[in-house]
């Protein structure tokens, strides 16, 4: 049963997978183009690739934020929009199975983007590195945590919007709206109340975004599981 649901959910998100793939690969294509522009026919040294691949991985992860928001916003609402949710509702799978399949496909997409990029940034790039520059500075761990937390928030908010709404576009908009609201709240709080301090704001943002995103996923899932109508 799950195989059938997973196939359906994968197919439903084909366009988003393609967008995600394009956004994920684009920074690496940019790196190759940069190498060709810079050094012409002679291929640059490993140090160049170490630095460029680290940056490309970060850019690829940044691009995944859009993919995650689209996946979250599309997850339930896309079947409501074309009313195929009504078809699914009178077939045997339980709500938990339907939701489980959607979650697996979304997690799979997230893993497919994040795992290769992290492997490139943390294994391949350091292996090519000769120690002449600070690799840790290039890897920007705090930025990565920020990107991961933003991804959870955007995906979670999209997921919640999707559980509540009939339109994937509005659900995606809800995802971005909540993210902007979180950023604006921290900016306003830091500027007016002085809390969190400028040095700590990134850490607070990452922690709050991750918690809020997880809460959104939990609430959206409960709403979907408890609702009787498709």
């Amino acid at each position: 049963m799950m195989r059938s649901l997973l196939w359906k959910d994968f197919r439903l998100n084909t366009l988003i997978w393609r967008i995600g793939l394009a956004l994920g690969i684009l920074p690496y294509l940019g790196a190759v183009a940069l190498a060709m522009l810079r050094d012409g026919p002679s291929w640059p040294g490993t140090m160049f690739w170490s630095a460029v691949l680290t940056q490309a991985a970060l850019l690829s992860l940044a691009g995944s934020e859009l993919t995650l928001t689209l996946l979250g916003g599309n997850v339930i609402a896309c079947e409501r929009a074309d009313r195929s949710a009504e078809f699914l509702a009178y077939l045997p799978p339980s709500r938990a199975q339907v939701l489980g399949s959607k979650a697996l496909v979304s997690l799979g997409a997230a893993a497919l983007i994040w795992v290769p990029n992290l492997l490139i940034a943390d294994l391949l790039a350091p292996a090519l590195h000769d120690g002449s520059v600070d690799i840790a500075a290039l890897q920007q761990a705090s930025l990565r945590w920020g990107l991961a937390a933003t991804g959870i928030l955007l995906f979670g908010a999209g997921w919640l919007g999707s559980a509540l709404l009939d339109s994937p576009a509005v659900a995606v908009g809800f995802g971005f709206g909540l993210w902007i609201a979180v950023i604006a709240s921290f900016a306003a709080s830091t500027n007016t109340l002085g809390w969190p301090t400028a040095e700590r704001v990134a850490a607070w943002y990452a922690a709050s975004s991750a918690v809020l995103g997880a809460l959104c996923i939990g609430i959206g899932s409960c709403l979907y599981l408890r609702r009787i109508e498709p």
Binding site: D82, R83, S84, E86, F87, Y90
Partner: peptide
């Protein structure tokens, strides 16, 4: 179940 309006996945 055969509903009045069929909502089978159109794609």
């Amino acid at each position: 179940y055969v509903p009045e309006t069929h909502q089978i996945y159109r794609w």
